[in-house]
Amino acid sequence: MLTLIKDTLTSQVVTLWRVFSHLWVKADTVEYPDEMPYMFPRWRGRIILSRDPDGEERCVACNLCAVACPVDCIALQKTEDDEGRWYPEFFRINFSRCIMCGFCEEACPTNAIQLTPDFEMAEYERQDMVWEKEDLLIDGTGKYHDYNFYRVAGKKIGGKDKGEARNEAVPVNVRSLLP
């Protein structure tokens, strides 16, 4: 009985006091439309497609973002330029379905798809929340400045022949039997 009373005093009453004492603490609320909150760079907001340091589209249409997407709101189609570079023919995100989970960014092997701190995406028409590649593609590298997938990959593209990628030897002469 005594312990119970003691517990009540030390636990419940102290709790009550602690909570009550918050009356003198300044509120954390940021009054958003009047005042813009600070958005952290890694905030998971509106999705963009970035370009590599050479200014080319980073997306290689590998479909990994689409398959990682838990709400299946990304659809794209691979196509290829004359010199073998893969890129998306179309790239569509249905933002009315997007849950900003960032799995697409996580899955992206080329750092092409990135989430940005912009969260002000409300629309009056739901149809306006379907974004195509023209809407998504930005002119910069986004959060990751140096990565260029095709400089690492072995595939030949315009401006990069076989053996010119990072850490690659010049192509083998198959007619030679020298070691």
Partner: peptide
């Protein structure tokens, strides 16, 4: 409630 929870 909001004062005690540091809200407005």
């Amino acid at each position: 409630l909001s004062f005690w929870q540091e809200r407005l």
